[in-house]
Design a protein around this nucleic acid. Structure first.
Lengths: 347, 347
DNA sequence: CTGAAAGCGCTAACAA
DNA sequence: TTGTTAGCGCTTTCAG
């Protein structure tokens, strides 16, 4: 009855305590078939009593079951985004018997160099957050090397391409409808970086919604932007400087929405009294400004969780030689209503 | 010359190619002594040619060298902070031959429960970010179980306690001095959560600086807060509503500084023309508002990197039976000057 | 300085 | 349904 168990219990200890062979213990622990209920129970009890936890290294070494997968990132995403991604992946990986490694690709590296780096890591799969997931040269090279790729929120999901994301168009549609339901008819839109397809999809959802509600889209109300706060300032300046300014602004991300609020305040406009302003993404910024932003939240953590799941599934079907399974999963977004929107002021 | 090397090369391949035994290869690869220069070189060449990378699992399984360490977090820190911490730790751990696992402790769990959870993970050490690092019951329990603990930015670093952080007092002193150098004499201060010692240390640095410059601290200029945006609003309201308002405000974090800017704008004050406002932490928020905040940046990623280093060092000295080494490391902070500060307006 | 043997904890494959 | 044998890739003995 010593306080400090120097060594953690091994499967041998479990087997001994359960009165079965190591193999039976192994099978029971891994939930395989072909184990009698009684043995299964005995093992379960032993595991419980000993506080046994399988040794991941040994498992990886023995079977070819545990594979390594990498979360490859450039330094261009924010650490909040990356943090969420990491948390999801780190939580899911062990459950799927995958080892997660994190790789950062060097700033100026060529696709070939990045692939070499990944290959060095002996990974069987890679999770690619934006903007990496849209670097087709990289994706192709990886695929050629038989490394599975799953894209997080890619610009477009090709067939036979593993991806997870949300439906930007649909989310934008919903947000636009929210504004319309409030009574807005002149709604300004601040575009994101034209190189990101997400921006185009959001605009599309916005346009579709207006069209469906019989509202003509005034092109003067669609201002260019690039997702940066700075660009949001200019766009909002333009929109609010119009002869007939909009009663609401739909910004393609929170940063630009925050900028729009800043401009509104500079112009002595009350938000949301005089003008409603909505964002997209629900970054921490959204709730750290006043008024807090009504915005769309994407389940980032769940995305990487799903990504790991997709990889695990792909490996399984590879092993079984069966055809590929589901390729693109779409997760639900959420409209977060805070204080930056309201019914339009009477004229 | 096949395209797809099915299996990665093992140490056997390296040894064969170098014309030495597996053991010599192992020793050479790990930089151990007792290897002839010629052998060492041959192995190095073989490694290079084969693109050999040691298999971490096998290494962990064979030696007792690789230990597991956990980054334990509650869900109370922001994901940006956690993300940075993760990136630092994930990058450093393999280099130190440590396996990093990430554990989230359940919201309402007792210290005992959390320790049990950690023990389950077979870790030899734990990295504790705030506020976990200040939960002394937890730290004690962990220590009793012979699990090394390193605290990230703890409220106070005891002797014999591994910790890494920055010098809050000193950083606050520097920021205050920056304001004084600009010409400010009436400087408001917005406190953080009184339960966080960091808040007190920042106030102390602020006071010390004023004292050193012969400026009396007017207690009316020190407003309570709790690090939240909301509390910053109230504090700023109070400060700016004073008969003789300050010409500058030093907020204990960026969120409250952002709030102060909001209030200033509501009162038709120009920032920084009419009033300078500084933050602390350099969160993404700092550069996503207008004007962008002058603030203090803490090297969060480096902190977790250092934390891993401390653990590795501790293990090494444990193994060698030597006494404990350096316990508390302080990292350099940085004063980031942006657009929220300026010389005070003439009266 | 170098090498051979043994085994880390676990699981495929094969028997029983 | 169960147990046995072998071996994953590496490092630790312990002998050369």
């Amino acid at each position: 009855m010593q306080r400090n168990d120097r060594k953690p219990p091994t499967i041998k200890d479990v087997a001994a305590r359960a009165g079965v062979s190591v193999m039976t213990a192994s099978r029971a622990i891994n939930g395989k078939a072909l184990v009698s209920p009684s043995a299964r129970q005995a093992v379960a009890r032993a595991v419980e009593a000993l506080g046994y936890v399988p040794n991941a290294s040994a498992r990886a070494l023995a079977g070819s079951a545990d594979r390594r997968v990498a979360l490859l990132h450039s330094n261009s995403t924010t650490s909040a985004y990356l943090g969420e991604l990491l948390l999801g992946a780190l939580a899911e990986a062990p459950q799927r018997h995958l080892h997660l490694v994190v790789e950062q690709c060097a700033p100026g590296a060529s696709a070939q160099e990045v692939v070499d780096q990944v290959a060095q890591a002996h990974v069987a799969g890679v999770i690619l957050p934006p903007p990496l997931c849209d670097w087709s040269e990289l994706v192709d090279l990886l695929t050629q090397r038989d490394i599975a790729v799953v894209a997080i929120a890619p610009d477009r999901d090709g067939p036979d391409r593993l991806s997870v994301g949300t439906d930007d168009r649909h989310a934008a549609y919903d947000l636009a409808r929210h504004l319309i339901d409030l009574g807005h008819r002149r709604i300004g839109f601040i575009e994101g970086n034209p190189r990101h397809r997400a921006s185009a999809r959001r605009l599309q959802g916005f346009r579709d919604c207006l069209a469906d509600h019989g509202i003509a889209v005034d092109d003067a109300l669609v201002a260019a932007g690039d997702f940066s706060f700075r660009s949001g300032l200019d766009a909002a300046e333009l929109l609010l400087g119009l002869a007939t300014p909009p009663t609401a602004i739909f910004a393609c991300n929170d940063d630009m929405a925050a900028a729009a609020i800043t401009v509104a305040h500079q112009r002595r406009l009350n938000v949301p009294g005089d003008i409603s302003i909505c964002g997209f993404d629900d970054t921490p910024l959204a709730s750290a400004i006043w008024p807090a932003l009504t915005t769309i939240r994407q389940p980032i953590r769940d995305m990487s969780r799903e990504a790991i799941g997709l990889l695990a599934m792909r490996f399984r079907s590879q092993d079984e030689g069966s055809g590929d399974s589901i390729a693109a999963v779409k997760l639900d977004y959420q409209l977060i209503r805070r204080q930056s929107d309201a019914v339009p002021a009477r004229h």
